[in-house]
Design a protein around this nucleic acid. Structure first.
Lengths: 149, 149
DNA sequence: ATTTATGCAAAACTTTTGCATGGGA
DNA sequence: TCCCATGCAAAAGTTTTGCATAAAT
């Protein structure tokens, strides 16, 4: 069963070796749809293959970030990053600032803006991250209940 | 000379005391247009008023994040966050993934999308962060020069 | 065979906590 | 005066580094 993840192909094409550490981290990221903290990546990789060292996981996360596979961001204010997968170079989600749940969505309509910025700033734009912040219906309900008068 | 920063007003209205630590961190953030790492905030606050402790700076950054004044993000891959100011609840920039320079821009045209998401997800949306990634003209030039064949 | 990438373990940082005390309102 | 917020300093995490070795190609 050959690996057919587009990321594996990219890694290979860029001249990087397909090592256990890299393939395992990739599996973990893809299994979680890419919303995962560094601590969780560390823990899951360790569970899958305890022979893989922490340092390699961090080195891999950095490499994947450089290659644009993932992007670190802060889902909650805890100071450990969450990594999101940049499928097709972009990622969009809405985060509830109260319960920290998030909802991904696909169509962002930013193609025109990308072209504009590319032209105006003379930059080769490869992707983007769009995060909305708000309060979900559940949390608004809870809030109301918590405020008696 | 009274403080007239809208953030100071918000702090007061929310019932928080206007302490030296909070006012100083606010000054530092505003002086840098809000693109500044935690380490830099720490250093600048210490330079302005050495009596302010690290812990208070971190507590203040967390408070400001909760209040929506700022938002932590990763400008470079170094694992210390950069804080951006969420003026009017939103922030938009383009980052050069090579030299890490960034360019802020104002009009994002996301008002309609905000309304749509609000309706579709039943969320009270308060703001957003939009980051584009790319390579600036300077870095593309350098790259070309570095590739002889 | 050649290197690149790794694992290890320690070092280097960054951030958080607990608690007595000071400074805003 | 009251009590929220602070400073301190230690603890708790997280990430990075250096180097001999393993493992991809």
């Amino acid at each position: 069963m050959p690996k057919r993840s587009p990321y594996v192909q990219s890694l290979k094409k860029a001249g990087y070796r397909l090592t256990q550490a890299r393939l395992t981290v990739l599996d973990v990221l893809e299994a979680d749809h890419g919303h995962i903290t560094s601590a969780d990546v560390l823990a899951k990789v360790e569970r899958i293959n305890p022979a893989i060292g922490r340092a390699s996981v961090f080195r891999t996360l950095e490499l994947f970030t450089q290659l644009g596979f993932i992007r670190p961001t802060y889902i909650d204010t805890s100071h450990t990053p969450s990594y999101v997968m940049m499928r097709g170079g972009h990622h969009h989600h809405v985060i509830c600032t109260d319960c920290k749940r998030f909802f991904e969505f696909e169509n962002c309509g930013l193609e025109a803006m990308t072209r504009n910025l590319q032209r105006e700033l003379d930059m080769q734009i490869s992707g983007h991250l769009l995060e909305f912040y708000g309060v979900c219906a559940d949390c608004r309900g809870e809030d109301r209940a918590e405020q008696p008068s």
